[in-house]
């Protein structure tokens, strides 16, 4: 079992948790979802988080993304300690520095695809970079769907729109919680290929939770979680290697 060492160059760390714990409930009903976790996520890297159900993957992601607060320890986005930030600051960090892709319900039903993509920028009152937007839309092959409402899109299209939204404001960091969980293998592959390309070609940083070893194989690094602690990690993972490792932890 190896614990990842803190990176020697802090500026290349996009997000980091330091001795972070998350406890739900009190007394008898206490659940320790994260148990003194310390972990770094390097910039320009595609990291996958894996582990058995209930191991704390989503919790870690939420705490890193400023959607939730740790009970103990610290969380940094770049060099900002978000565990000490106000609610308002957190919101602005999410809006301006972070992109999200969730498993489902990613889009606002009353807005069309284009409006959903530019939503965070519209909330900030900023104009999207049109050329950038066009290139994302073209790569994700949703150009002919831009004026459609979410209810008129397929599941895969909806996820691609969500990915486009996560990318369009060039965030420091993109978090994805089982983004391909609801998709078939072909649609999954499209999304994952695109995410891979975003890291390789555009220098994006992506942290993705997944249950799927083949999805994890797209990542540069896999972090294994169990019972709220990091139990292992793997660089340049292959699907088979990940599967073997998971079996070890009873995932």
């Amino acid at each position: 079992m190896s614990t990842p060492a803190a990176s020697p160059r802090p500026e290349s760390v996009a997000a980091r948790a330091v001795n972070a714990s998350k406890v739900y409930g009190e007394g008898e009903a206490e659940v320790r979802a994260l148990d003194h976790i310390s972990v770094d996520f390097a910039s320009h890297q595609f990291t996958a988080i894996m582990g058995p159900s209930g191991s704390g993957k989503s919790t870690l992601l939420h705490c890193l993304a400023g959607l939730d607060r740790v009970t103990e320890g610290q969380v940094f986005i770049g060099d900002v300690d978000i565990s000490a930030s106000s609610e308002k600051q957190l919101t602005l960090i999410r809006r301006d520095r972070i992109g999200f892709v969730f498993q489902s319900f990613n889009l606002i039903p009353t807005l069309n695809a284009a409006e959903n993509i530019t939503l965070p920028m519209a909330l900030a009152g900023r104009k999207p970079d049109q050329a950038w937007m066009d290139s994302i839309v073209a790569t994700l092959r949703i150009g002919d769907r831009l004026t459609h409402r979410p209810s008129e899109l397929s599941g895969g299209q909806q996820q691609r729109v969500a990915v486009a939204r996560a990318l369009v404001s060039r965030p420091d960091l993109i978090f994805a919680d089982e983004p391909t969980g609801n998709l078939d293998s072909r649609a999954s592959a499209e999304i994952l290929n695109f995410m891979r390309a975003a890291v390789d070609d555009l220098g994006q940083t992506i942290v993705m939770v997944t249950h799927d070893p083949s999805a994890a194989s797209y990542a540069d690094r896999v972090v294994f979680l169990a019972d709220g602690t990091i139990v292992d990690e793997m660089l340049e993972p292959s699907a088979d290697g990940v599967l073997d490792r998971l079996k070890q932890f009873g995932g």
Partner: peptide, 16 residues
Amino acid sequence: TREIGLLRAVGMTRRQ
């Protein structure tokens, strides 16, 4: 609820 939560997640402020 979910919609509002999503909006908040992607950066809508409480005031908004």
